[in-house]
Simulated assay, not measured.
Amino acid sequence: MNTQPDIQVVIEYLEDPENEQHKLALDKWLQQDAGHLDIFLEMRALWQGDVLPAISSYNTTRQWEQLETQLDAPQPLTVAPSTVTPVKKISPRYWWAAAAILLLVAGYTIFHQPAYLVKQTAQKQDSLLLPDGSMVYLNAHTSIRYPREFKTRHITIEKGEAFFDVAQKPDAPFSVNTDKVAIQVLGTSFNVKDDGRAVKVFVQTGKVSAAFKGSDNKVTLTPGVEAALATANQKIETRRPQKNNNILAWKTRQLVFEDSPLTAVAAALENCYHVEVVIRNEQLADKKLIASFRNLPLEEVLDIMEKTLQINISHKNDLVEIY
């Protein structure tokens, strides 16, 4: 949010509120952010020498309606005399008000910082070093939120998938929340994926506790174990995937298939390359693939699969079809 207004625009309007150009400039700035109205009201009170009320005491809706009416009010047309406009001497009050407004805006910027920060990814992956030294790796299409003051080590996954490498601080537990699942750790590395139907937690090192919020239904996970917490019925299923399970392939960019059925290959490709993979011929579902791919583009992977399994694959936009 841009909370640093153009001081000159605001002051020009306050000096000459009937000037149409000043009205337009102020209106444009007010439309940029909803928070600008609060700043303007405080500036106007300072300018007029009023005692500043708390922001919460403003009837923002009524003030906005009144200001819109004032800005939209037509003014009588006047013809300026054809004389040279004298240079206007700036009064000491102007400088006092400007200085007061600058202090006001600086204070607003400092004390109105958002309590939480948001990190989002679109098509590409990204990583984030947290203030406590922990690392977060975000898959594509992921959004997380965390406190600006990271005294309580708490992360919220709003959507998507993230891998956490948590710095060990026994006196400060690290927690990760999704919409319906809470995860507690002390120092470990683990993966969390919320696909809307279930929250999947896979532990690489350490120990993790995952529970449904407001419930005693929870599970403790050790290295190599994955839990799927179904949000619809609060059912928890755990499994120990094979060593080369490709759960972290989106992060490592390495896919390993050891006699893997094509259905498992399709699921791994979907998660790693963010495409939909459809097996059109059901007879191909049990075909087995032995191959490994390290940081290869999807087109190369599909080409190798075609030649190795002697199948047909088409790829258009985000859809891969196997037949």
Rank of each mutant, 00 (worst) to 15 (best):
K200R: 12
A268W: 00
A45K: 10
H22N: 05
A267E: 13
K316H: 03
T220E: 04
H22D: 06
K251D: 14
Q254R: 14
I39S: 07
T252P: 04
K124C: 00
V278T: 10
I101K: 00
K23D: 04
I39W: 02
Y273Q: 01
K207M: 07
I247K: 03
P297Q: 05
Q21S: 00
E18A: 02
D286S: 15
I155L: 09
K213V: 15
A98W: 11
T308I: 02
H141S: 10
W96S: 01
R280K: 15
V9K: 06
I90M: 02
Q66K: 10
E226C: 06
Q125S: 15
G160Y: 00
V278H: 01
A80Q: 14
A167R: 15
V275A: 04
D27G: 09
K151M: 03
K23M: 02
L130K: 11
G107M: 11
Q120P: 04
L117F: 08
W96E: 05
L269G: 09
V166R: 07
L269A: 01
A210M: 13
L102N: 13
K288T: 01
V87Y: 08
K169G: 00
Q310A: 10
F150T: 11
I155P: 02
S143A: 07
Q63D: 03
R93E: 02
M43V: 09
Q283L: 15
L128N: 05
K159T: 13
V219I: 02
V51D: 07
H36D: 01
L262Y: 04
A34F: 15
G35D: 12
E276V: 07
A80D: 12
I183W: 10
L24W: 12
S175L: 05
N312I: 03
F163R: 08
N281M: 09
K307L: 00
T152S: 11
L117T: 09
P74I: 03
P131C: 07
D195H: 09
E282K: 15
A267R: 13
L298C: 00
W250D: 05
V84K: 14
G196W: 15
S175F: 03
I311R: 02
N139H: 06
G107L: 04
P81M: 02
P17W: 08
R153W: 15
Q4H: 12
Y116K: 14
A54R: 09
L262N: 01
S134Y: 01
I144D: 04
A54G: 08
K180C: 05
V10I: 03
V265L: 03
D171G: 13
A264Y: 03
I290L: 15
I55N: 06
E237L: 12
Q123M: 05
S91I: 09
A291K: 04
A100N: 01
D259R: 13
N233G: 06
R62F: 09
L24K: 14
L248G: 00
E12M: 13
E321H: 03
